[in-house]
C-alpha cells in the first residue's frame, strides 16, 4: 500500500483524539484503581493515604460480605448464561422461517429487551409483590385465582435470587435470539440440502450443519452474556437492596457500597481489581475453550 509514503503522521493525527479519551477515562482510572487498592484511603480525604501493602486485599478476601457477593454473582452467572443462551438459540431456530405466527413470536420475545433494566426491575418488583394487607402482586394474584399457595418471592432468602435470574432471562433473551437469527442466515442453504441428500435427520442436521455454522456467533453470545451477568447491579439494587439477608448482593453492589456507604476507597478498589481479574480470567478461559472446540469440529 503506497510504498514509501510516510503514513505515521496521519496515523498519529487520526488516533490522537481516541487515544486521549481512552487514556483519560480508562487507563488513568485503571492505574488509579491499582494504586488506591494499595493504600488506605477514605472517600472524603483529598489525598492518597499511607501505603497499606496488601492489607486491603486481605480485608476484602476475609470479608464475609465479599464472599457472599462473589457467590451470589457466580450463582447468577452460572444459571443465566447457559439457560439464556440455550433458550435464545431454541427460540431463534423456532422463529427462523416464514409464517405470521413466527413474526408474532419474534416480536413478543424481543419487546422486553427494549425495556431498560431500571424499568424491568421496578415492573417485576411489583409483579413479585407478596400477598399482604394492601393486596398482592400480579403473580401471587393469579396463583391465588388458580389455587396455588402465595409465594414470598423477593422477600425470601431462598427465592429472591432465583426471581432475579428469571426476570433477567425474560428481559435479555430476545437480544440474543436476534443475534442467533442473524447468524443462522449466514449458513448457506446448500449445506442443509447436502445433509438431506445424505439422509441426515433434523437432529443430525442441527449437530453437523447448524451448530458448526453458528459456532462463531455462539462464542460471541456466550462471552457477552457472561460479562453482562457478572456485572449484575441494577436488579438487586432496586428490587431487594441486596437482601434479604444479603442473598442477592452482587459484586458491583459490594464495590459501590464499600466506596459510598463505608467510604473506603482502598477496599472498593481492591475489590475492583479482584473483579477485573475474575472477568478477565473467565473470558480468556471461555475463548480458549471455544477455540479448542472450533478446532475439533
Amino acid at each position: 500500500m503506497n510504498a514509501g509514503r510516510r503514513e505515521w503522521p496521519a496515523a498519529v493525527l487520526l488516533l490522537a483524539p481516541a487515544a486521549l479519551l481512552i487514556t483519560l477515562f480508562v487507563l488513568v482510572p485503571a492505574a488509579a484503581m491499582v494504586n488506591t487498592s494499595l493504600h488506605l484511603q477514605s472517600l472524603t480525604a483529598p489525598q492518597t493515604g499511607p501505603a497499606a501493602g496488601l492489607d486491603n486485599y486481605r480485608a476484602v478476601i476475609a470479608d464475609p460480605d465479599f464472599r457472599s457477593a462473589t457467590g451470589n454473582t457466580a450463582f447468577f452467572a452460572v444459571l443465566v448464561v447457559p439457560v439464556q443462551t440455550a433458550l435464545a438459540l431454541l427460540l431463534a431456530l423456532w422463529v427462523d422461517g416464514p409464517g405470521w405466527w413466527r413474526r408474532v413470536l419474534r416480536l413478543a420475545v424481543f419487546i422486553p429487551t427494549t425495556l431498560s433494566l431500571t424499568v424491568t426491575a421496578v415492573l417485576w418488583k411489583l409483579l413479585y409483590e407478596p400477598a399482604g394487607a394492601a393486596g398482592s402482586g400480579l403473580i401471587n394474584g393469579l396463583f391465588q385465582a388458580v389455587g396455588i399457595a402465595p409465594q414470598p418471592f423477593l422477600t425470601s432468602p431462598h427465592q429472591a435470587l432465583l426471581c432475579i435470574v428469571f426476570m433477567s432471562i425474560w428481559q435479555g433473551v430476545g437480544f440474543q435470539m436476534m443475534i442467533f437469527l442473524a447468524g443462522l442466515q449466514t449458513i448457506p442453504d446448500q449445506q442443509y440440502e447436502a445433509a438431506t441428500l445424505d439422509g441426515a435427520g433434523s437432529s443430525r442436521q442441527f449437530l453437523h450443519v447448524t451448530l458448526p455454522g453458528i459456532a462463531p456467533t455462539l462464542a460471541v453470545v456466550v462471552t457477552v452474556t457472561t460479562i453482562f451477568a457478572l456485572k449484575l447491579f441494577v436488579q438487586p439494587y432496586l428490587m431487594t437492596h441486596g437482601g434479604p439477608l444479603g442473598t442477592t448482593q452482587s459484586l458491583v453492589q459490594y464495590m459501590v457500597r464499600a466506596a459510598f456507604t463505608h467510604r473506603d476507597l482502598g477496599l472498593a478498589c481492591a475489590a475492583g481489581v479482584l473483579f477485573l481479574l475474575a472477568v478477565g480470567a473467565v473470558t480468556v478461559g471461555q475463548r480458549l475453550l471455544a477455540r479448542r472446540w472450533e478446532a475439533a469440529s
Binding site: 488509579a32 472477568v279 478477565g280
Partner: peptide, 17 residues
C-alpha cells in the same frame, strides 16, 4: 482485548478521576 472490560469495573476509580 479491552472490549471485555465493563465500565462497572472501573466505576469507582473513574469517579475518583
Amino acid at each position: 482485548a479491552s472490549i471485555i472490560l465493563p465500565i462497572e469495573v472501573i466505576v469507582i476509580p473513574l469517579f475518583m478521576t
